[in-house]
Design a protein around this nucleic acid. Structure first.
Length: 766
DNA sequence: ACGGGCGTCTTTTTT
DNA sequence: AGACGCCCGT
């Protein structure tokens, strides 16, 4: 019998901080169900619109599915309906989701609705589906069969190499920014040679274009794709090889796409090509929940669906089954301020429920105390469990204070999206070994491990080796294999290299005969990795050894659950894992995550924290004169509010220290959008460790009451000022001493400037 | 070749 | 406040 992990850990008094523990490989292990006597009905319990969407026949269909309107249900029931009632072979259906978790959930539900048939249905994320297609047919566009997927850190490492090769100053051309530009181009299917014109031909763009070109070249040399390549190469495969496209078109008579509001141009193109022939394209989305514009998603795509397909059926799902009336009303009051949105409004039969609670804390510690107090109170006195709560924040950096406070209070919690298990250095090292074994051309991974653990191959040797590899057109491993022919490398490093090559060769020889777990074991032992850690004898090293052992249970788990386990499959599934995929359900813990990660999830009680101008909405949007950025922030707020089934707590801090800077804050404008009658306010509370009852007595009428302009400079947060050079801006904070205040002013396009009024003439605007 | 220590820089969200 | 990179001493 397989013991599910929650059975083991649910009643442990200790917390399961995910900082110490790997999360399970598969977020969803669907428990083996009892045999279905009779199939669940497909149409029962659906409302009129849902039913309409499910039974829609052929032709394009657009479903606007508001938050909590039963979207997943409609999607799965539609697939089941096609299979059971219309005789469509599941083999002919493709369903594209945003996360693996959503894909797994859909599979699990389909298993119940169409037992025995669900297996041949393709469900996956854009990236996993494309990876699968490229694995099959990628060679037609130059993608080798054993390609690897480069993650974020691989990409950055490679970009840095490219900058170095082109002798560009990484100060001037910040790797992460260059990478963003390249990614933006790839989202729009722009190839390196078109980049310069596409961007408008500034001198900077010419440089980026050269880096882009080199980067692509290097990816190719490494037999690697980055995330965006997976989509782009598949589109190119389809565009250049109509026979391949037709094969897939004929396979997938029905295409379903979830989260359509968050797709980018390349993904749009891909879906368009796939669905072109049969035109049975069903897309589901909600323009009010479009929150990925910053990474190339284009909500105009969903807005224009009915222009693209004039015969499209459009169905709106507006009945909400998740939240109370008050929560829904609050969400509405926020989102209705957006200009760019389809007309629609969620409604519910549910009672109004409790009011939202708002609290303005003194600083971020008090904010965390308030959240902890509230959680403890509700758990102790109102029968709530820790799993009922989610703390949602705008930026990951906010999680730390909550972690500290939760640890001290003994509140069990998990943080999503921080440092993932697979991002840890020791795990990445071992994965790099596996990747080199799988794909010897992967020089980025090889560089990572060539001297880890240290084996006498230092920076100088590596440099010489790379040089030789470049000159001879060899991969790093090939160059290392012939190290004795490189005169620049001394005899000692040559021997070390020879030994390293034979280590890799030995491991490669075993990859065909042993499973992933045994191979990984061999890597850990033969590479000397474990020995090196054991010799270190520090607490840190012991933790690493634990993680290394955890990796072995991950491979074991993979081999048990995968249909056809392989090294390639294991590596790929890790590369395409998202942070929510690691959210295991049913654990008795509070969950902390960003608002972005929370999309698609729901919790009885939600804390929306850090509701401050400049944090949420984030500074860039708050002080930008591009209203679209603010609209995206507002949608993010809408997403946060609609995660709650029963209660919402909204918090902010008067003083916030973040990234080592302390600043006075103003309450978020989103909070002010919510009508007073929906909100009750608590605070401010000054003594720490207050109890809920204490907070209760310090109830105040308005949360903004504590806002003040705290100094003698004549300037306060929120003032509009005119600068002789920068123009008009808004004071966002006042710091420094009372005699010598320093004022931070946000100027549109120019960012936030720290100004000393003693030197600059600042005119206060009425 | 290697590791420690110091200084600098960065901080939106992530498939 | 933390991560990272660089430089220096061993």
């Amino acid at each position: 019998m397989h013991r599910l992990p929650e059975e083991c850990s649910a009643h442990k008094p200790a917390m399961c901080y995910n900082t110490a523990r790997r999360r399970r490989y598969f977020p969803f292990r669907v428990s083996v169900g009892i045999m279905q006597r009779s199939l669940p009905s497909i149409l029962d319990g659906l409302n009129e619109q849902q039913r309409e969407a499910v039974v829609h026949g052929d032709g394009p269909l657009l479903i606007f599915a508001g938050a909590g309107s039963g979207k997943t249900r409609v999607l799965t029931h539609r697939a089941a309906y096609l299979i059971r009632e219309r005789g469509v072979s599941p083999h002919r259906i493709l369903a594209v989701t945003f996360t693996n978790k959503a894909a797994n959930e859909m599979k699990a539900r389909l298993r119940r609705l169409t037992p025995g048939q669900h297996r041949s249905l393709w469900v996956g994320t854009f990236h996993s589906i494309c990876a699968r297609i490229l694995r099959e047919d990628g060679e037609r566009v130059g993608v080798p069969q054993n390609f690897v997927v480069f993650d974020d850190s691989d990409q950055t490492a490679l970009i840095k190499d490219c900058l170095r090769d082109l002798q560009l100053d990484p100060e001037q051309f910040v790797p992460s920014r260059v990478l963003n530009s390249i990614s933006a181009a790839k989202n729009e299917l722009i190839a390196p040679r078109d980049y310069f014109n596409w961007r408008g031909g500034r001198p900077y763009d010419e440089i980026v274009a050269r880096v882009y070109e080199r980067y692509q070249h290097q990816l190719h040399e490494n037999a690697a794709c980055d995330f965006d390549d997976l989509i782009d190469y598949t589109v190119w495969l389809f565009e250049r090889h109509p026979d391949v496209l037709e094969r897939y078109q004929d396979r997938f008579h029905y295409v379903l796409v979830d989260e359509y509001q968050d797709i980018n141009f390349a993904q749009y193109r891909l879906i368009k090509l796939l669905a072109e022939k049969h035109r049975n394209l069903c897309v589901v989305g909600d323009d009010d929940q479009a929150i990925y514009g910053w990474r190339g998603a284009d909500m105009r795509i969903i807005m224009r669906f009915d222009e693209d397909y004039p015969d499209a059926r459009v169905i709106k799902l507006e009945e909400n089954y998740r939240s109370t009336g008050n929560v829904l009303r609050a969400a509405w009051e926020v989102i209705r301020h957006n200009e760019v949105r389809r007309e629609k409004r969620l409604w519910t039969n549910a009672p109004p429920g409790e009011k939202l609670v708002c609290h303005r804390a003194r600083d971020e510690h008090d904010e965390a105390f308030f959240v902890a107090d509230t959680i403890q109170h509700l758990v102790e006195h109102e029968g709530r469990s820790f799993r009922d709560f989610a703390v949602l924040y705008r930026v990951n950096a906010q999680s730390r204070v909550f972690e500290t406070v939760f640890v001290s209070r003994g509140i069990p919690y998990r943080v999503l999206g921080g440092l993932r298990f697979y991002d840890r250095a020791e795990i990445k090292d071992l994965l790099a070994y596996l990747r080199v074994i799988h794909n010897p051309a992967d020089s980025v991974s090889l560089k990572r491990i060539i001297n880890r653990p240290t084996r006498g191959i230092g920076a100088t040797t590596l440099q010489r080796l790379e040089q030789a590899a470049r000159e001879r057109g060899l991969s790093l491993l090939e160059a290392a294999r012939h190290a004795e022919a490189i005169p620049e490398i001394g005899p000692r490093p040559q021997r070390a290299l020879a030994q390293f090559v034979s280590l890799i060769d030995g491991l490669c020889a075993r990859k065909e005969t042993v499973g992933v777990t045994d191979l990984t074991k061999a890597v850990i032992e033969q590479s000397g990795y474990r020995t090196a850690l054991e010799e270190e004898k520090s607490a840190k090293a012991r933790g690493k050894i634990e993680n290394v052992d955890e990796l072995l249970s991950a491979t074991r788990e993979y081999e048990e659950s995968a249909e056809k386990p392989s090294l390639a499959g294991f590596l790929e599934s890790i590369a395409l894992l998202t942070s929510v995929d690691e959210l295991e359900e049913g654990l008795e813990t509070v969950v902390l995550m960003t608002l972005h990660s929370a999309k698609g999830l729901e919790f009885p009680i939600v804390f929306l924290v850090g509701l401050e101008e400049g944090l949420f909405p984030i500074a860039r949007a708050a002080f930008s004169d591009n209203p679209m950025e603010l609209e995206e922030e507002r949608r993010l707020c809408y997403v946060g509010l609609t995660r709650a089934k029963e209660n919402v707590f909204l918090t902010s801090a008067e003083l916030r220290t973040i990234f080592g800077r302390t600043e006075h804050t103003m309450v978020s404008r989103f909070l002010k959008d919510i009508p007073e009658e929906l909100v009750e306010a608590y605070g401010p509370i000054s003594p720490r460790n207050i109890t809920w009852e204490a907070a209760d007595t310090s109830r105040r009428a308005a949360p903004e009451a504590a806002e003040s302009g705290p100094d003698g400079s004549g300037f306060a947060s929120g003032d509009r000022v005119r600068h002789p050079h920068f123009g008009d801006g808004m004071v966002v904070s006042v710091s420094g001493t009372e005699e010598r205040p320093i004022i931070s002013v946000a100027f549109p396009h120019k960012g936030i400037k720290k100004l000393d009024p003693a030197y600059v003439e600042l005119e206060k605007l009425g």
